[in-house]
């Protein structure tokens, strides 16, 4: 069984590298966010599989936490792109004039 866990880990590692290449290539910011989100999902899977590989399934708590933080991070970055701030969106004088 250990062999199969390590094969899965290698597959996840290769996928991580491919997703990292997409994050580096871009071209738009949303490609990078998408790639980073996928890297987060892959990291969750890698933590789970490594926990089994190592015989220490307590790692699953960390995987659960990583999935949560990954989601919050993605949403926060998108909000920052949209509003330019993580707080309340106050229109600048120029934007106020355009309205």
């Amino acid at each position: 069984m250990s062999l199969w866990f390590s094969i899965t880990l290698v597959a996840i590692g290769i996928s991580l590298l491919l997703a990292l290449a997409r994050a580096a290539l871009g071209p738009t910011a949303f490609d990078r966010v998408l790639a980073v989100n996928s890297i987060g999902t892959l990291a969750v899977l890698a933590i789970c599989v490594y926990g089994f590989f190592d015989g220490r399934p307590e790692f699953l708590d960390i995987a659960l936490l990583y999935a949560l933080i990954n989601f919050i991070g993605t949403i926060s970055v998108l909000k920052y792109f949209r509003a330019g701030t993580l707080g309340d969106h106050v229109p600048t004088e120029k934007q106020r004039g355009a309205q």
């Binding site: 949560l68 926060s76 993580l86």
Partner: peptide
């Protein structure tokens, strides 16, 4: 704190 941050990001800091 992450839960409160999610609340602030989605529903506004105010």
């Amino acid at each position: 704190a992450a839960a409160l941050v999610l609340n602030a990001v989605v529903f506004g800091l105010h």
